[in-house]
Design a protein around this nucleic acid. Structure first.
Lengths: 222, 222
DNA sequence: ATAAAAAATTAAAAACTTTTAATAATTCTT
DNA sequence: AAGAATTATTAAAAGTTTTTAATTTTTTAT
């Protein structure tokens, strides 16, 4: 992993760099804000550790500048205890997390992993017509609301989306959502479809699931 | 997307290529198995459509050869109805899906999306010491079993993993797993930890969650 | 138009999750 | 070593989800 350490205290910066090296990561040190900005322009980092108090250009300024330039690299702020009041300001300016000094290397690593995971999670989203399906949190995300799905509703919607534009039979749904050896002598598919339709309708104001009489269901594409 | 169409019927191949182009994808046609193998050696495709019956080297041979060479690109077999008996053979040889002729372009696109999603899902896995956490299906995967987690167990384990090697307090767990404004006057954290510990123990034969008396819990790293 | 088949709706039963509360076991301090 | 604080365990209550079953509505074919 490529890490930028923007930190003017050489001791801290060097010890972090050394620890990262032991973990197999490559870190570059910037001793002031100006240098940090310069490096960020040149190199694509996986994560940026940014000290709040730095010579020439301070952390907040760096943060604002790079976010304004559209750089989305995860950023973790390093702040002294007395700077805590600036936490909200920092998060509002586009920081992903912050760590209070003094910190252990393990803590830094844990925060980095958490931040990277969080940003990875954000990509675990299926984009649909006028809504998104968040695969990790199992919610339908539309412009103004989030609708939590149950297990079966989630599996069903996921399957429908994967078969968008193709008619799927009830047997197929049974096999793929409930499991291959499941033969219901009940209307469980209809009931679950009803519930999913209701949530989709509430979330998106659209009826995506069309019934094809005698054949099955069709998840409409556009 | 870069797509290989290995199909000897020029009509079908060309119409697929045209449809893909309309969708913004770039397709390359191979009219026989030999050409297909040659192209696969040269180009990294996102997905390969492979006809079962082809001149020179047939689909199954192509399939076996490229899988033997360690190529993991998703492959969808195109088969005539009469070839259906070979379906199992094909899937065993490493195909990801198969489509029976005649097919609509929409069906092909849907299958491609499903296959790509499936292979993307396989990357949605957090690797831990001697187990994996499947983020989509919410199961602990160890060498021999899969253990399904409930909502709260999943959130809790995910949080622990993100804070691996760092002590997390009960308040912190409350805030991050149950929600920021949740102050329990009960032992709900302890109970959920107990249940998670049991499942982790069953799945991995390890006790990853250590209690730090008076401080909180520690998810052990290695 | 009508009957038969298929799908939708509703509501209650069964199964599972989450929360609560009481009790037991462990850890720390003096 | 005893008492206080903390954590673990157990089991029952409350809340959700999943399944079942009966009834109503819609669709298709005669």
């Amino acid at each position: 992993m490529e890490i930028l350490i923007a930190e003017d205290e050489k001791k801290i910066a060097n010890s972090l760099k050394k620890s990262f090296a032991e973990e197999g990561h490559h870190a570059i040190i910037a001793l002031d804000g100006e240098k940090a900005l310069e490096l960020i322009r040149e190199i694509v980092f996986d994560v940026i550790l940014l000290d709040w108090r730095m010579p020439k250009v301070n952390g907040l300024e760096v943060l604002k500048t790079i976010r304004k330039n559209g750089v989305k690299t995860p950023i973790i702020l390093l702040t002294a205890l007395s700077d805590i009041s600036n936490k909200v300001e920092a998060l509002n300016a586009g920081a992903d997390d912050y760590i209070t000094k003094p910190f252990s290397f393990e803590e830094v690593l844990a925060r980095i992993n958490a931040v990277l995971r969080r940003s990875a999670e954000e990509t675990n989203i299926i984009k649909c017509e006028n809504f998104n399906l968040d695969l990790i949190n199992r919610v339908i995300v539309s412009s103004d609301k989030k609708t939590k799905l149950t297990d079966k509703e989630f599996e069903l919607l996921k399957y429908f989306i994967s078969k968008k534009g193709v008619i799927v039979s009830k047997d197929e749904l049974c096999a793929n959502v409930w499991g291959i050896n499941f033969n219901p002598h009940t209307n469980i598919v209809e009931v679950t479809i009803k519930n999913l339709r209701k949530k989709l309708e509430e979330a998106t104001c659209n009826n995506f699931i069309k019934t094809i009489y005698g054949e099955g269901y069709l998840f409409i594409s556009e």
